[in-house]
C-alpha cells in the first residue's frame, strides 16, 4: 500500500556506540524497538502503519558491520551494513560467488541497492527475498550478537514464516558468512517479475551445481525457490533426483516437476498460484540447463 504523504510516524532514532549497548537497549525495549540497516523495508512498513516501533536503533556503524572480507580458506563474510551495490562490485564476490552478485543485481534498482543489504534481505524474511536463495544453496550462516554474546545460525533454519525469524529480543545480526562454494561450481538465479528489471519476484529460482564423482549422476545440485511458499524453500526431492540418476533432458524435466510439486504458492496481486507453480517448473528447468551446460 502506498501513501501520498511522505511523513514517517514518530519514533526516536537511537545510535548506540557499541554492540553490547545496542543489544541491551533492544532487549530492554523488546516489542517497541528494532535495529535497522538501510530502512528499505522498515520505513515502508512504518509509513504504512504495519509497524509501530517507538525506537529505531541504527547499527550500521558498529564493529564489523561495514566489513566485506574474503578468506581463501574459509569463505566470504559480508557485514550487515555492506550495501548490495558494494557486494555486486566486489572483485572477491565476482570471482568466487558470482551467483550472489547475480541475485543481488536483481533487487529493485541501483539507488535502492545503495541502501539495501544482504543481512536486511534475510532478516526481512520475505518469501520473495532475492538473495536468500543464494544464501541457502551456499550454506550461509548468520553471525548474531545477542545479550548472551555471539553465536552463528544457519540460514537454512533461520526462517519461521513470512516476516518471522528465530531472532530474539536483543539480537543483532552483524554479518552473513558464505563458506567456500564447491570447487568448479556453477550457479544461476532466474527471476520472473512483472518487468524485466526492478520488480519483486513472482517466482525466483536459484540453482547451484558441481561435479561430484561420489554421486551416481556425477553431479550434485542445490535448488532454492522464492515467492512460492511461506518461506524460502529447498526442494530436496528435486535435488535428489539430479544426483541419483544420470543427467538427461528428461531428468531435468523430472526435477523441475518435483520442484513445482514442492512449491505451495498463493494467489496474489503479482500472480496466481497455478501460474506460479508452472513458472517454478519452467524456470527450474531453464536454470538447471544453464548450470549443467556451464559445468560441461
Amino acid at each position: 500500500m502506498l501513501t501520498a504523504h511522505p511523513g514517517l510516524p514518530e519514533f526516536d532514532y537511537i545510535k548506540p556506540t557499541t554492540l553490547p549497548e545496542a543489544s541491551q537497549f533492544l532487549a530492554e525495549h523488546a516489542g517497541e524497538a528494532r535495529p535497522f540497516l538501510g530502512g528499505t523495508d522498515t520505513f515502508v512498513r512504518l509509513r504504512d502503519g504495519a509497524w509501530k516501533d517507538k525506537y529505531l536503533v541504527d547499527v550500521k556503524h558498529l564493529d564489523g558491520m561495514q566489513t566485506l572480507a574474503f578468506d581463501p580458506a574459509a569463505g566470504l563474510t559480508v557485514g550487515a551494513a555492506v550495501n548490495m551495490n558494494r557486494v555486486i562490485a566486489a572483485p572477491e564476490v565476482q570471482a568466487h560467488y558470482p551467483l550472489l552478485a547475480e541475485a543481488a543485481h536483481t533487487v529493485a534498482s541501483y539507488q535502492l541497492r545503495t541502501r539495501a543489504t544482504l543481512v536486511g534481505n534475510a532478516c526481512n524474511a520475505s518469501p520473495a527475498g532475492d538473495t536468500v536463495g543464494a544464501g541457502l544453496v551456499l550454506n550461509a550462516e548468520l553471525l548474531i550478537f545477542g545479550v548472551d554474546g555471539g553465536r552463528r545460525a544457519p540460514l537454512a533454519t533461520f526462517f519461521r514464516g513470512p516476516g518471522k525469524t528465530t531472532l530474539r529480543p536483543g539480537d543483532i545480526v552483524t554479518a552473513i558468512h558464505y563458506p567456500l562454494p564447491p570447487a568448479g561450481h556453477a550457479g544461476r538465479y532466474l527471476k520472473l517479475g512483472r518487468n524485466a528489471l526492478g520488480d519483486l519476484a513472482i517466482v525466483g529460482v536459484t540453482a547451484l551445481g558441481y561435479r561430484d564423482p561420489a554421486a551416481p549422476s556425477g553431479y550434485r545440485f542445490r535448488l532454492a525457490l522464492a515467492s512460492v511458499a511461506p518461506m524460502p524453500l529447498r526442494p530436496v526431492q528435486a535435488e535428489a533426483l539430479l544426483s541419483d540418476q544420470p543427467l538427461s533432458e528428461a531428468g531435468l524435466q523430472a526435477a523441475a516437476e518435483a520442484a513445482a510439486a514442492a512449491a505451495t504458492p498463493i494467489d496474489d496481486v503479482r500472480g496466481g498460484a497455478e501460474y506460479r507453480r508452472l513458472m517454478v517448473r519452467n524456470l527450474t528447468r531453464q536454470a538447471l540447463r544453464d548450470v549443467w551446460q556451464r559445468l560441461g
Binding site: Y13, F43, Q111, L112
Partner: peptide, 27 residues
Amino acid sequence: CTAGECGACTVLWNGEPVNSCLVLAVE
C-alpha cells in the same frame, strides 16, 4: 511514491544515488 519505487526523490549521497525518501535526515 515515498516507498523507494519511483526514483523522483533521487539525490547523490556521498556520490551514490539514493532514494531520499528512504534516508533519515539524522543519518
